[in-house]
Structures are given as structure tokens and as C-alpha cells.
């Protein structure tokens, strides 16, 4: 795992910085549900794109892997949406 992270340090740094920004935006807009839904949507789409680009760069992108990132992106959005929509 660590070897994999070291090998793709820039991609993981991008993900880490984006997720830190994501948490910061959640805190900034914590009382604005509409903005939070927008932030959640953008975060999910970012993750899907990150995953696809990450595998495309390594020439390991398959349809199954693309579906996997799309499904995980949808899952994290739904986890946030369930809490935010009520």
C-alpha cells in the first residue's frame, strides 16, 4: 500500500488536498443545506474523475473499475444526501 502511495504521491496529494478542502467547505457551509448538497455533489464527481484519471494514467482503466468509482462516488453522495435532505 505504502509503495503504491509513494509511487503515485502527486495523485494522492491531489486527493488529500481536495478532501481537506471538502471538509473545510462542509464546515463553512454547515448551516446552508443547499450549499452542502452542492459541495457533496462536487466532491463525489471529483472522486469519480480522480479514480478514472488515476487508472487511465496507469493504463489500467477497465469498464469494471470505472463502474466501481462511479458506484463509490454515488454511495458517498447518498450517505451525505440522506443526512442533508432531512
Amino acid at each position: 500500500m505504502m509503495e503504491n502511495i509513494k509511487e503515485h504521491i502527486i495523485e494522492y496529494m491531489v486527493l488529500f488536498v481536495a478532501m481537506t478542502g471538502f471538509i473545510c467547505l462542509l464546515m463553512i457551509f454547515r448551516y446552508n443545506k443547499l450549499a452542502l448538497l452542492g459541495v457533496s455533489g462536487i466532491g463525489s464527481v471529483f472522486y469519480i474523475l480522480w479514480g478514472i484519471i488515476h487508472h487511465a494514467i496507469r493504463k489500467r482503466l477497465t469498464r469494471t473499475i470505472a463502474y466501481e468509482y462511479i458506484l463509490f462516488g454515488i454511495l458517498v453522495f447518498l450517505l451525505l444526501f440522506t443526512v442533508l435532505s432531512f
Binding site: N4, R30, E68, F72, F86
Partner: peptide, 29 residues
Amino acid sequence: KLTGQTFAHLFILLVVIAGIWFVLKPGIV
């Protein structure tokens, strides 16, 4: 495994769980 990055999936899930647990609160003004 011939799959996506498990570490990345786990990382984003932990971020979301932390967000739900610590940040998100009910209520509308």
C-alpha cells in the same frame, strides 16, 4: 487485485463519515 484503489475508497469514506459525525447538524434558518 485487479480493482480500483481500496485505500482511496477507504479514505473518502472516512472523510464522509467524519463529516457526517462531526460537522453536519440538523436545522434550517
